[in-house]
Design a protein around this nucleic acid. Structure first.
Lengths: 343, 343
DNA sequence: TACTACTGTGGGAGCGCTCCCAGCCGTGAT
DNA sequence: ATCACGGCTGGGAGCGCTCCCACAGTAGTA
């Protein structure tokens, strides 16, 4: 196969616009117009060009197009690598799936960019700035991250996943954390639970705050008292928080954990204390990850429409890219309570 | 000078090679040589150019480079979308992580390409062929998939994950399925189990066959008899196979499932039959996914070094790309038995 | 009839690089 | 002093497209 590779090295004889034009008996400009779907081409000419394209198996050269048109037809999905939480189920693959679905009928390419430490993060801004992408999808953005604003200043369309505050200035797609938490706790109340605790995520994360707010709202509706322990979305944190809650309120009969992973940690502690789930203590998580489905008993959990969020992010970004003036829309998608045996 | 800098940072005014050359008082060719690390540049000149690059914040234009040099500095990770198995834990995110790590110190970009049905698959060959990528990583390739051979013929370097047969002609990275299975079953034997069943994956998948071979080898070593039921890597398949095994051999005291998901299905059936794990029946899975860690009891499982496989795939591909003649190496990475409470 | 509008069309002028070929200089050998 | 031969260097010639201007042809208007 050495021969083939050699051929590849010198541009493999792939047809160019020029050759298509010659074949169709028209000029370069006309072929370009047909390729790009311009309406200012007569029907016969269009047909002739399309025939030539098909005969020669012509595919436009992206690099040439990018250079001439000053756009790349590519967007970047920027993933913070150290962020273990994002890489865990179900986020990453579902987001990618959704983005891919939205891009499937498009000419857009998806560039995956993993950013590690600060050094790479610095390079990234420069990298993205030099017009290598038409837009950027940012997931798992922290409140104090300068990157989104930097990109905005550079005029690069950005869509982020998850708002960072109530009035997010950037285009964003979020799930309804408040309502998801409220529904979960309301379900516990409806099940006759009266001492309902929560294990929160880190409260500098807006989504974690909203889940706490939802918990509080449901308790207020039922006239019940709040019982919260703070953790950090990890299993170990869930264990510690659960132990703390049991010490503070041995009579609790339900726990709403702001993530499945924390719920898993809580379950271990409940077991160690000889508490049956759901008989003695009901347990609900958040994320509806595979952990929830395979936990024993299967965990009731709040499902976020991650794949749809990915799709929506991509669609918003495409809209922002083609818009003449940025609109920065904020989309909030509904969550869904998936009831299983744990509650 | 903040204003001036802001202006420069704007997309329209990004510095070009030419401007760097003017600034450094040298010619375009010389700047190009410095940028590309050519040794044929004097020290003073190099320093002058590097200073100019730093001052202007110059970043090469990828499109222009790709057009002129006829290479894209990008590789594609092709993911078969319908393949639910691949998208499930732990594969996808770990592979991406590994690939990303290998590419981190490189100028290579990672293009993520999700392919759906046959129609898209057809487009894909054309797409990849038209010189948009320097190489392709193919995951989850079926034995009868024409794509890898197609790409090879087009002279595009390819690395696949998982061999399709004993003598895989393409460059590939695989894990040692045989040895992983053998170690798992040997561990059961060492634990005193005497009637050890297996639930296999689909046997047209080479990896699934190798796991069965490893199971057989361990049994042969111990002088025990084989007891196999075939399934398809799904939970439901695991349930059916387990039920079949219990009917055929009620006295079995251990099960080796060729995937965690199937082990999860098997566990449900074992429970339904009132069998305790591991007291009555030991259970071992394969993949060491999050399912294994969160199963009750936690599942002993064979860990594949997925992230390292991703890294190795990328490294092999980079080597193939820069090699003058393809070497098509086959790499097999070791697996590891992670012993938990289920065995 | 002469003029102004279109609609289609061809092709020049780049986009920002790499490649490569001359040409410059200094050095060592003759 | 002459020649040959390297190491460095400058810059022309593209890479394959898009953009845009000019212009032919046709049709509508006074």
């Amino acid at each position: 196969m050495t021969a083939a590779r050699t051929v590849r090295a010198r541009s493999a004889g792939r047809p160019t616009l020029e050759e298509v034009a010659a074949r169709a008996g028209v000029g370069r400009g006309t072929v370009s117009r047909v390729i790009n779907g311009s309406p200012r081409v007569s029907e016969e000419t269009r047909a002739a060009v399309e025939a030539a394209v098909a005969e020669l198996g012509y595919v436009p050269n992206r690099a040439a197009r990018a250079l001439a048109a000053n756009r790349t037809d590519a967007i970047a999905l920027v993933v913070p690598e150290p962020e273990a939480r994002f890489f865990a189920e179900p986020y990453f693959s579902d987001i990618v799936r959704g983005v891919g679905a939205a891009l499937a009928d498009t000419e857009m390419q998806l560039l995956l960019t993993l950013v590690g430490g600060d050094r790479e993060r610095r390079r990234l801004a420069q990298y993205l700035a030099s017009h290598r992408v038409d837009g950027v999808l940012l997931v798992s953005v922290h409140a104090d991250d300068p990157l989104p604003e930097l990109l905005e200043q550079l005029g690069i369309p950005v869509v982020i996943s998850g708002r960072r505050s109530e009035d997010e200035p950037l285009a964003s797609v979020d799930s309804d954390n408040f309502e998801g938490a409220r529904a979960a706790v309301a379900h516990l109340v409806a099940g006759g639970r009266r001492t309902i605790a929560t294990i929160t995520g880190p409260l500098d994360v807006y989504g974690a705050r909203r889940r706490l707010d939802g918990y509080r709202a449901a308790l207020a509706d039922a006239g019940l008292d709040e019982l919260a322990a703070h953790a950090d979305f990890t299993e170990e944190g869930g264990r510690r928080a659960m132990a703390e809650l049991l010490a503070r309120a041995p009579g609790l009969d339900a726990v709403f954990a702001a993530s499945d992973v924390m719920a898993s940690g809580a379950r271990q502690v409940l077991r160690d204390h000889g508490r049956r789930i759901p008989e003695d203590t009901a347990l609900i998580g958040f994320d509806d990850s595979s952990i929830a489905r395979h936990m024993d008993p299967p965990l009731t959990s709040v499902r976020q429409p991650i794949e749809e969020m990915g799709r929506a992010m991509a669609e918003l970004l495409l809209a922002e890219i083609s818009a003449t003036t940025p609109t920065r829309p904020s989309l909030v998608l509904p969550t869904e309570l998936v009831v299983r045996a744990s509650s």
